[in-house]
């Protein structure tokens, strides 16, 4: 969970290295790469959110929720 933003920073820092290459990176590749990372992060964050929700409701820790923990 805590490592997710670090992963994001790492992956999104990769484009910084492209400038060093001799041949230019085509725009379409760049677009696909950036949005690919984005999708990965979103899915990972979604899975984390569901897991935390389960853990909270299993241990009975309400997490200040005023009802049963919401599942998504």
């Amino acid at each position: 969970m805590r490592l997710l933003p670090l992963l994001g920073v790492g992956l999104w820092a990769v484009p910084l290295l492209w400038n060093a290459r001799a041949r230019e990176t085509p725009m379409s590749h760049a677009v696909l790469y950036v949005f690919g990372v984005w999708l990965l992060l979103v899915v990972a964050a979604g899975i984390m959110a569901v897991m935390i929700g389960r853990r909270n409701s299993d241990t009975g820790e309400p997490g200040e929720a005023d009802g049963p923990a919401m599942r998504f």
């Binding site: 999104w12 484009p15 910084l16 492209w18 400038n19 230019e24 990176t25 725009m27 677009v31």
Partner: peptide, 23 residues
């Protein structure tokens, strides 16, 4: 995607400082 590559902004031109700084 082909049209994107053929356009004026068809290649990756990024100043590393701006990319990191703006994020």
């Amino acid at each position: 995607l082909e049209q994107i590559d053929a356009s004026d902004i068809g290649s990756w031109q990024m100043q590393g400082g701006r990319w990191a700084g703006l994020i």
